[in-house]
């Protein structure tokens, strides 16, 4: 029983951090209506920035995060402003052009990282990396718990931002109906730029929180892109609350799969859930609460 409890708690903690990455993606998806395949690569860039801060100045990953986030905000804004927004007006046969552009961006970011840092596995070892505490006879990792609570704090701040500020409201308006928002005087292109920036900054935050737990190498981005997608679809595009539930579901499913089936098949568990949701609940969890 304690194994089961530990597995579930571990899944919830991990899922909370995944959720933070996925919220970044779901924001972008909600506003832009595009699939951002570069999202995992942005997580990876954020992780490397935090890693460099740790290596060269000895900054704790949780402090390095505060450098990585504004940096990624800027990178995200630039990508949106000078690349993706340019494509909106272009006439092409397939609407998936923007998706492919994000693939190109992903390639460029991944390969830049490979050029600078080589393909070596790197890790950050802090004093608390492998420390745990016990609840009953379940051992729970401290960096996971800290990461989970920081992720939840960010999610709450984002929620306040989206519901209480003018800018947040214009982001939600653009996501609901871009044209209507423009008629109401929202500067939609500027909103998309800021949204992409915020989404990237959240990706960086998620990456930094996971840095003490994961090995870091340039291709790690693919892993996070896949997870963020699954969560986004589970939760419903553009829904912050949905992303949290999606994140927790994926975290628990993966962790149960790893404990009770096998480590190798744990990703299959996530993908199968993803397909089932896609087929039988296409709106994600969001559509359940609307009824």
């Amino acid at each position: 029983m304690s194994l089961f409890g530990q597995t579930v708690i571990c899944g919830i903690l991990l899922g909370g951090m995944y959720a933070l990455i996925a919220i970044g993606m779901t924001l972008i998806m909600g506003v832009m209506k595009i699939i951002n395949l570069a999202h995992g690569a942005l997580v990876m860039v954020g992780m490397y920035i935090t890693y460099v801060c740790y290596k060269s100045w000895g900054l704790d990953p949780y402090i390095g995060m505060l450098i990585a986030m504004p940096a990624l905000f800027l990178i995200g804004c630039l990508i949106q402003r000078y690349m993706i927004n340019r494509l909106v007006e272009v006439d092409s046969i397939l609407p998936e052009n923007q998706v492919l552009l994000t693939v190109g961006i992903m390639l460029v970011l991944t390969e830049l990282a490979r050029l600078i840092f080589k393909s070596d596995y790197r890790s950050v070892t802090t004093g608390y990396s492998s420390s745990t505490f016990f609840v009953g006879d379940m051992s729970i990792s401290i960096p996971m718990t800290v990461g989970f609570f920081i992720a939840m704090a960010f999610t709450y701040l984002l929620h306040l931002f989206l519901t209480r500020t003018d800018l947040g409201r214009s982001i939600r308006a653009t996501a609901q109906d871009r044209n209507a928002a423009i008629y109401m005087g929202v500067n939609a292109p500027r909103v998309t730029v800021i949204t992409f920036g915020i989404g990237s900054a959240l990706a960086a935050a998620g990456g930094s929180l996971l840095l003490p737990l994961f090995y870091l190498w340039p291709d790690i981005g693919h892993l996070f892109t896949a997870k963020a997608f699954i969560i986004t679809i589970l939760g419903g595009m553009g829904s912050t609350m949905g992303a949290i539930f999606g994140g927790l579901t994926l975290g628990i499913a993966e962790s149960l799969g790893a404990t009770y089936i096998s480590m190798g098949y744990k990703d299959v568990v996530g993908l199968v859930i993803f397909l089932l949701v896609l087929l039988f609940l296409p709106g994600g969890f969001k559509s359940l609460t609307k009824r």
Partner: peptide, 20 residues
């Protein structure tokens, strides 16, 4: 080793300037 990087940049350019 930078060949994939160059290819990625090219992909971005093609999509931006030759969308079809």
């Amino acid at each position: 080793s930078a060949n994939v990087l160059a290819f990625g940049i090219l992909v971005c350019l093609v999509i931006l300037f030759l969308p079809n």
